[in-house]
Design a protein around this nucleic acid. Structure first.
Length: 412
RNA sequence: GUGGCCAUAGUUCAGUUGGUUAGAACGCCAGGUUGUGGCCCUGGAGGUCGUGGGUUCAAAUCCCAUUGGUCACCCCA
């Protein structure tokens, strides 16, 4: 028997209503903030990701689904959304149409990691990018959008963590400083952290290893070493957040795993999840557009994991997920009436009413049971008598009441 | 990629120190005066016990491997 590939999952009919609900709310919130949808292909030239995400990151180094197509070209299933969006932005010169482009996406992503709760190999994210604005207001809009989003899902137990990771002017100096400090304690750190001192020293700071945490307790944090520009940006960001009554925590150890981030970095975590507790993450990436061959274009964006959101929503009892049910079930009382039932069913469906009937030659009792299981609002039984008189009784399944109707003009 | 735990009907699980035809609940199907659902009652279908190998007279049960799941690390949304 064939099984789905490791780390992939079917969304079955019983679960799809929840997914549709999530996508619907997400779109509504994006539209409220005037972000427009962009749909990019699920695979790209491999170089796009190694260039944007960073050669040295784990995503590029060991997690991408990369393969040669039939013309020997290396392509990769997208491991994240931003690179594709920026590629498209540059390719189609969207900058010429308007100075600030605000787009969102809802899409599957692919990373070959060891599957775990809230982490699949094909997973889904929604996210947004505001391309072309350097103002801290834009960063705040993105954060406010995420907060609004989770409020719209009636989530309460999440927190917003922010940090600044500096820019090309101040980060290199801080990086050197940090590396020097870390080298002093290198031998006591975990192997992973030791490895990162040279590759990506900032990541040592958000190690989950307790001993690493203790050892780096007094290491200088970047927000004390920001250049004037980055400092001002961060101060303004915090002040606007406060004015908008969006609560946040500063986390000087918060670092993004992708290389392209500058200045603002943020993460939304939930205490209702396991160790994969990040619901959403993002930040500013002022250098990415030019890195990918476009004009210098300051931008900010975020991505959120849909599976993780759904894990939380599944635990909630109080949310109402709209499910689809037939409005009417037409049952045949005898075999000779089945054709007429099909005619009536189609007639009403053409009038845009959701109607179901029996296709399994079942008894009337079984048809009634089926109508009930399908949670149809009404049932109409048609037999010889109804066909002769063109009159029938339509039954309301929730209260059992019946109403006489004319079969030539059914209205419900 | 590393480590712990787990794998029995569609689902959630039981299965005593290895011992005859592997059970329950829910779900599914049919019936309960031949034209009316939900509740209740009766009956039925459904499993080569994840897969492969080994130990044994005998394996769902013990051993090994493998695959998948799960939790943590790593990484990240």
């Amino acid at each position: 028997m064939f099984k789905s590939v490791k780390g992939t999952k079917d969304i079955l009919p019983s679960e799809s209503a929840l997914w549709q609900y999530v996508e619907k709310i997400a779109r509504e919130v994006f539209h409220r903030f005037n972000y427009k949808e962009i749909r990019t292909p699920i695979f790209e030239h491999t170089g796009l990701f190694s260039r944007s995400i960073g050669e040295l990151t784990d995503i590029v180094g060991k997690e991408m689904y990369t393969f040669l197509d039939r013309s020997e070209e290396s392509v990769t299933l997208k491991p994240e959304g931003t690179a594709s969006v920026i590629r498209s932005y540059i390719q189609h010169n969207l900058t010429e149409e308007q100075p600030l482009v605000k787009v969102y996406y809802i899409s599957p992503m692919f990373r070959q990691e060891r599957p775990q709760a809230g982490r699949l190999r094909q997973f889904h994210q929604f996210g947004a990018e505001a391309i072309g604005a350097s103002t801290p207001e834009t960063d705040v809009e993105i954060i406010a959008l995420i907060v609004e989003m989770y409020r719209s899902f009636s989530l309460n137990n999440f927190s917003v963590k922010i940090n600044s990771v500096g820019c090309e002017n101040c980060r290199p100096q801080y990086k050197t400083l940090l590396q020097n400090e870390l080298r002093k304690i290198s031998s006591q750190l975990s192997p992973e952290s030791q490895n990162r001192i040279e590759k990506n020293p900032l990541r040592v700071l958000d190690s989950k290893n307790e001993k690493d945490r203790e050892l780096t307790e007094n290491v200088p944090l970047i927000y004390n070493y920001l250049c004037e520009n980055c400092h001002q940006h961060f101060e303004k960001l915090k002040s606007i957040l406060t004015h908008l009554t969006i609560s946040y925590q500063i986390d000087g150890r918060l670092v993004r795993g992708l290389d392209y981030y500058t200045k603002t970095a943020f993460e939304i975590t939930s205490n209702e999840l396991g160790s994969q507790d990040a619901l959403a993450g993002g930040g500013r990436y002022d250098l990415l557009v030019q890195e990918l061959g476009g004009k210098p274009t300051p931008s900010v964006g975020f991505a959120a994991g849909i599976e993780r959101l759904i894990m939380i929503l599944e635990k909630k009892q109080d949310i109402q997920i709209p499910k689809t049910h037939p409005k009417l079930f037409i049952a045949a009382a005898d075999d000779n009436s089945r054709e007429y039932v099909f005619q009536k069913t189609m007639e009403l469906r053409r009038k845009e009413i959701s109607v179901e009937m029996d296709f399994l030659q079942r008894s009337l009792k079984a048809q009634m049971r089926e109508a009930n299981r399908q949670q149809a609002e009404y049932v109409l039984v048609i037999g010889i008598q109804e066909r002769e008189t063109q009159k029938g009784k339509i039954k309301n399944l929730s209260d059992g009441s019946e109403k006489e109707i004319d079969l030539t003009k059914i209205e419900i």
